[in-house]
Design a protein around this nucleic acid. Structure first.
Lengths: 131, 131
DNA sequence: CCTACTGTATTAGTAACTTAGTACAGTGAG
DNA sequence: CTCACTGTACTAAGTTACTAATACAGTAGG
């Protein structure tokens, strides 16, 4: 599905949330698809079910997932994309962090862009593989 | 000097450490320059002196700063740059995080690169202004 | 000497995350 | 109905990280 990095500063539930959003954006998960159950995904990722549940709840609150109680969790028919303003804010914050890190280690803008292309392609490829 | 974002997931001491490295990389701080005292910078950034001290200690351990006890802290005569392998690792990790966030909000690679250019330029301009 | 500044060390408090265990309500297949 | 599965809720504990408050040690200048 996707990888969890326990050493990352970002909490696991956020990594799961982001991973699910990535898969939807890239088409590896389509509207109506069933999502692994809380307990299954927890076992697969070797984390606590509560951690997965937290990510699923957030995604449900934001209209990305739809829950049919007793049946399971599904990708919403029209998974809501974040508003453009919010999207831009997230992108800008992430960009600032990356630019800051890049400069602090002496990377040029060219280095940073090259590395970004590599990372982006890798993620796209990873998820397309399982679509 | 530089801005601190208290809402950022990254701890303040790391933001300070990164900010100092940026200023050195961009020439806003040169070898031999004196650095604000722990308490001064703490007051300026509205954070606890210990938080600044932690950043300074790390920079000193890595050979970026030099301390003369009782006198103050200075930029080392030859501030050490991280090894290429470590530099690449930091850059790659940061790039992965950025790419992941970008995809998760539906940004194209073009969007991500544009935003990166903006952030990079802004940081360079900010520090050049005070060099 | 003494005051004011430097960095440093120690201790405590606070908050977040993760894990664990248990329990409850709803659905569907046998 | 019964059983196995769904998501959800709650409490508790443990760990870790960050921040805060205070005291200590060294240096320079009046």
């Amino acid at each position: 599905m996707f990888d969890i990095n326990p050493t990352d500063a970002a909490p696991i539930w956020r990594q799961i949330e982001e991973g699910m959003r990535r898969m939807i954006t890239l088409g590896a998960l389509k509207p109506g698809d069933t999502v692994p159950s809380v307990r299954d995904l927890a076992q697969q990722l070797r984390v606590n079910p509560n951690t997965v549940a937290r990510a699923y709840q957030r995604l449900t609150e934001h209209g990305v997932f739809a829950v049919r109680r007793g049946e399971g969790t599904f990708v919403a028919d029209e998974p809501s994309q974040p508003k453009r303003s919010e999207r831009n804010e997230v992108l800008r914050d992430a960009s600032n962090r990356y630019a800051s890190a890049a400069i602090s280690v002496g990377a040029t803008i060219g280095d940073a862009v090259d590395e970004l292309n590599t990372s982006y392609d890798r993620l796209v490829r990873e998820h397309r593989r399982k679509a």
